[in-house]
Amino acid sequence: MRLQPDEDALEFAAAVRDLLSQTCDAQALRAAWDSVGQGASGRDDGRVPGLWKRLADMGVAGLVVPEELGGAGLDLTGALPVFVEAGRAALPEPVVGTSVGAALLTQAGGAVAHEWLPRVAAGEAVLALADGHDALVVGGQWADLFLLGDNDGVRAVARDDVDVDSAPSIDPGLGLARVRVHAGAGAPVDNADGRRAFDWACVAVAGELVGLARAMLDRAVGYAKVREQFGKPIGSFQAVKHQLADVFVATSFAAPVVNRAAWSVAHDLPTRSRDASHAKYAAGRAAAQAARTALQVHAGIGYTYENDLHMWLKRTWSLASQWGTTDWHKDRIARELLGG
């Protein structure tokens, strides 16, 4: 048995982390945020120029696309460490949305999958999932194909058949857009299991939240070691130490819950939805605690736009509210455990 992702998956994620530390450091991230509204079309607002191509060359775009369609063919347990790295970098690229879409198309198979998945793996098309015909969509600004879930199943709708209005939010690196689908547009994706895709997305985002929590803990610990008051590093004071220790505990206990959920979703176990909700809930809580604590430890400088911390805080707030809020997931679990 093993609850950690496989060694090769961890190694691949470490390579992604190296790439992101070079190409998507805080300075690049800040530049990406500042790019919003500067481009002509707005299509790539908030992204890091050229990064998606490099990620695609590494295999990140086609992470879960089957090998015969040009991808890496990983399941959710193998892809999860990459999502953690996306979170750690507060990455403003559609890694998760595209992967969720690719997982859904891979599960369904058929014409849409065969048409689009090779393009996804090549980095030529990015995907986004929309819940309903008029929805706020993460990565909607950037997507080439929308997978639209409603009561009748899942439809694939090309960008030409939707209206995309950018939805300015506190996180410009999210590509958030309001997406309205033209009546009758798109093609049905037969056999698509939209509910499973939703659970898949919850676990992927939970992975991002774990990465965010770790990044914010690292930032806060690093700052507490160098910031001096009363002639000492503030990290020597117990009031600061204990808050940071509590974040370490919350994050340490969320990660195995997320790992387990990846297994449950990948193997479609009966506990799949409950495990996915637990992952989103635990990671959402841990990341929220990490964000509050990191801000408090940074104090005045943390409350500025000039310090880099705010980009991680805002990504945390954004993701905690996406794919079902932290509270919504708790309620879903409670209903399952207690009935009613």
Binding site: V221, K225, P233, S236, K241, H242, L244, A245, D246, F248
Partner: peptide
């Protein structure tokens, strides 16, 4: 325990 974590795991002074 919080002191132990902060000092030995997180490396705080």
């Amino acid at each position: 325990q919080r002191n132990v974590l902060a000092e030995r795991v997180l490396g705080l002074p």
